[in-house]
Simulated scan of single mutants.
Amino acid sequence: MQQAEIADPFVLEVIDREEPHAGPGQVRVRVRAAGLNPVDWKIAASPAAAERYGITAPAGFGNDYAGEIDEVGEGVAGFAVGDRVFGGARGRAVAEHAVSTVGTDLLAHTPDGLSDEVAGSLLIAARTADAAVAAVGATPGDTVLIGGAAGGVGVLAVQLAVAAGATVVATGSAGNHDFLRELGAIPTTYGEGLVDRVRALAPSGVDAAIDLQGTETALAAIELGVPPVRIATIAAGPTRPAGTIATGGVDAAPDALDRIARALAEGTLTLPIQATFPIERIQDAVQLLRGGHVRGKVVVTV
């Protein structure tokens, strides 16, 4: 998979390239599935974003992947040929092979019972959800407002907050409300009138908030009287309201990936895959992702 130019619109092409190999301290993974994240297309479309992440054209695409190790470099411990794994390779995930440096790139063993499609969607979503819920300190008795709750990060954040004993009020499009109820949340729509709707749904007040899309939820939470130190954002950028917490996967607990992967394999958590596309239809996958309103994840299979 190659992108010749960082620009919007961008074109992704499936190309033949020289096969990579694992060097010292590295493993090569035969990729089976790569879950897409909004940051993937934002990097591909924006030279400024690409520069922040160290991506230059011609470039690959994607970050999250899952598959099995088919080559192990010298000095690698804890991983062997044939191991099912999932992890991340920024700008290199949507490909037949991904090479990861053990100890530098995040790489974890895939639990039995967890599909490559779900495992390949976990790295960013699981760690970001874990960090966001921890950042606001969700505890039993709290009411937590979560904005953008039906996406990959949101689905996991809702379940983690519910598991912590919190009551969750979750924003999403009307078509996702029944699904959010199944996760244990009280759904509502986003947009104009959000504060009034939340007041009606949570008459005793809101204690914390997580904004997964921008600043609408964070600003609503402030108006609802939530202390800024209990409001987390992941995509607010320079518009983040003063005093609120900017967080992301880098702040996740060290055991977050393994813990959430095991819970998914055991069925105590769920992460829906809305659509799966073969690599030849990568542009269709990106178009669906960019359109918003995705429930869970969009996955490319290789």
Rank of each mutant, 00 (worst) to 15 (best):
E182C: 06
G172I: 08
R197F: 08
T215L: 05
A208E: 07
I186K: 00
A157T: 09
A209N: 06
I146S: 00
A150Q: 00
A131K: 03
E117Q: 14
G214H: 14
G151Y: 04
G151V: 10
V168H: 04
A185D: 08
G214N: 15
E182G: 15
A221V: 11
R127L: 15
A200K: 11
G175N: 05
R199N: 09
A135V: 07
V155M: 06
L145Q: 09
V169H: 12
A209I: 10
A119C: 02
A157Y: 04
L194W: 13
E216P: 13
L156A: 01
A131M: 10
T215V: 15
L219T: 15
V168Y: 02
L212Y: 02
A174C: 02
E182I: 08
D178K: 01
Y190A: 13
L183D: 08
A174R: 14
E182R: 14
A125I: 02
L219H: 11
V153H: 00
A202T: 15
G137L: 03
L180C: 05
Q213L: 14
A209W: 02
G193Q: 02
G214I: 06
L183C: 07
A135F: 07
V155S: 08
R127N: 13
A138N: 00
A149S: 06
A126W: 03
L201W: 09
A138Y: 00
A149C: 09
G154P: 00
V144E: 08
D211Y: 06
T217P: 13
A174I: 12
S204H: 15
S173Y: 12
G120D: 13
A150G: 03
A131E: 09
R199L: 12
L219Q: 13
L212C: 03
L219Y: 03
A221I: 12
G148S: 01
G141M: 08
A135R: 14
L194H: 04
I186G: 02
P187H: 09
G193Y: 01
L183W: 13
A125T: 07
A157E: 06
G152W: 06
L212K: 04
G214T: 15
E182V: 09
L212H: 05
D196Y: 02
A125F: 07
V118G: 05
P140D: 09
A209C: 09
A208L: 08
G152F: 12
S121I: 01
P140K: 10
A208H: 06
G152V: 13
A218N: 12
L145T: 11
A220R: 02
D207R: 05
T215M: 10
V144R: 04
L145Y: 10
D130A: 15
L156R: 00
V158Q: 04
L212E: 10
A185H: 06
T215C: 06
D130H: 11
